[in-house]
Design a protein around this nucleic acid. Structure first.
Lengths: 349, 349
DNA sequence: GGTTACAGTGTAACCGCTTACATCGACAGG
DNA sequence: CCTGTCGATGTAAGCGGTTACACTGTAACC
């Protein structure tokens, strides 16, 4: 039942072409005619149909955003950055998250076909391989992936640089015995962080020491226990993400080991609680929303044909934020709420 | 240059109608013909155009989501719930956030016209008033608003019920001197929470005592200072949100007042850090993602014509989660790492 | 054998909008 | 006066699908 351009045309006593012209401010239209059309438009509350327009001009002014999950601060910030940038340029966001496997991603990809002008996707490395030839060939795609090995362009976080910086920082504080708590093997972020750490050690001529982990707080806790039990304790621990760092922190505290006095500690991600734990966690921060904005801008440039170089890989900077857990700063005089993980979160489904 | 249905038809030696039929699994098609068409489709990598289809069948299989901001856990959870539900039903999400005023909202509304089958919007009360007659009349709209006074249907959080429950809880613990730290005047959530609190006091025949606030941690801190300076201190404090509760907590701690022994404390929202502060904060939790899912389900029902009753107002339940700050539970004996929401950029495959 | 029913397919008219092209005056230049 | 140019507008052909309707052939029924 929505009112169409035809009805407006009839009402205004002109042709649809003229209506279209005044709506799009194209071609010259006599002022008087324009006024009539405008009157008809407001009378009828006419709003042009987006899809019809899209079909006709072969542009949707929308970009697809495909993310592996929509949970957590990371994604919400990416989306926020994208949204801001997109809105500013008159684009919409068609969002899709939480897919669980390549088949589902493919389904999403085909579902949005013809609905978007471009695509920003974050796919686990595995999926990228499998979907390689299925990525829509007719629209520009920007990958927000890790996986520096892949021949895929896009933007990814400078995990390596961040980890290198943290390691240098710890070394700079005089530490010679460092332990790295790693992430999942298959995870490219984890691998890159590890690599950055190793580079930092190499610079200083130090021996690498690795404890396995999987990015979970429990894994961090387990690593902490192993440290307590070890014959020779390190003077600094660098966990591949904050969750594990916090796990380590708990274990050490339980074992009566003080942080940072006895062992310095650092994480990666700068999750919100990182600043609330006691001592506040030294970690690596990434301006995620900026990443989103940057991603959109690059895609837009491609859409406008200003560049086809979506294949270029770009590393988004990660900066270390120094707090107390590494011992570089004195602990805060007045502790704000302290941290203690509790038994059983009471989040209800 | 994308391949169209015509090319598929030519390639398969059939008419476009037949191709359409096999693609949509409609009407009977001879198995042999179907096979030919399928072959042509895969050969050509044909994917039907979403907009063309939408124009034709007058359905987009997309719903618009308009939120005031995309920042913070709340929105990210709403979106997540919506996304899950939408995907399950074959719908897409057209997302738009961070608008700053009614004019911008109106622009967004008209921009998505014809691109979505329905709309889920969260608008500050003020905007709802101004946009009342501009909300798209031809598609169902579900409002995710506070403002129970408004004649608008939709879903909103049961602030009043949650606040009532907390107040009852505190009263049930024997408290007779309660102080409520309020939120911004214009904020309907704040008003509802206050109302719920007053109802709880009234039940017990207690006197209301109010300290002003604005939902910021600083405001909570200020309130805490005033409590310290007060001649007669309450035995329990209920802050209209967690941020302020944490502010209160800091102030009290600084003043040497113990929580919960000297003063019991409760908040509202169950923000992530609520469980990490010491003592862990008793607060009110809302399953935001469920709210999102519920919103979608209701909209979908309307889309399917199963109901037009989008005007019905529904209150989404809020439940109190009892932790240590109210004194109902003993403080944790030994901190053990347990459940921890992983928030960071450490996406796992 | 003559309906009748229906499976299987093609033709063409939409869906609502854009836009190339045609038309038509008015006006300027020759 | 004729022609060319240009402003203002209408006509109609798409854009890529869907689908009502028409048509054909075959099987079932009386």
């Amino acid at each position: 039942m929505p009112v169409t351009i035809k009805e407006v045309a009839r009402r205004a006593g002109v042709s649809v072409a003229t209506v279209s012209r005044v709506v799009n401010r194209r071609d010259p239209v006599r002022e008087e005619t324009r006024a009539q059309v405008m009157a008809a438009i407001t009378d009828l509350r006419y709003v042009p149909s987006g899809v019809a327009r899209s079909l006709s001009i072969r542009q949707t002014h929308a970009i697809g955003v495909v993310l592996p999950d929509l949970h957590g601060e990371f994604f919400s910030e990416v989306i926020r950055g994208l949204d801001r940038a997109a809105r500013g340029s008159g684009y919409h966001l068609l969002l899709s998250g939480s897919h669980s496997d390549p088949a589902e991603v493919e389904a999403v990809l085909r579902a949005i076909h013809g609905r978007v002008d471009g695509l920003i996707a974050m796919l686990p490395d595995l999926e990228v391989d499998q979907l390689a030839d299925r990525l829509p060939p007719e629209i520009p795609v920007l990958l927000l992936n890790g996986g520096e090995e892949a021949p895929w362009g896009g933007i990814s976080i400078d995990n390596e640089g961040g980890a290198l910086a943290v390691t240098r920082h710890l070394v700079g504080l005089g530490h010679r015995h460092l332990v790295f708590v790693g992430g999942p093997e298959k995870n490219s972020d984890a691998r890159e962080r590890h690599r950055g750490h190793l580079a930092g050690l190499a610079e200083a001529g130090l021996e690498p020491r690795l404890l396995p982990g999987d990015f979970s707080e429990d894994a961090g806790y387990a690593a902490g226990r192993r440290l307590l039990a070890a014959a020779e304790r390190p003077t600094a621990v660098f966990a591949a993400n904050d969750a594990m760092a916090i796990g380590v922190l708990c274990a050490l505290r339980e074992g009566g080991v003080r942080v940072p006095e006895d062992i310095a500690l650092a994480g990666f991600d700068d999750i919100p609680v990182a600043r609330y734990v006691l001592p506040a966690l030294t970690t690596v921060h990434v301006a995620i929303d900026e990443l989103g904005r940057r991603a959109f801008d690059r895609l837009l440039a491609a859409l406008r044909g200003e560049t086809t170089a979506l294949g270029e890989r770009e590393r988004f900077p990660a900066s270390v934020v120094v707090r107390e857990s590494c011992g570089a700063k004195p602990a805060r005089p007045t502790p704000v709420p302290a941290f203690f993980p509790i038994q059983g979160g009471s989040r209800q489904p």
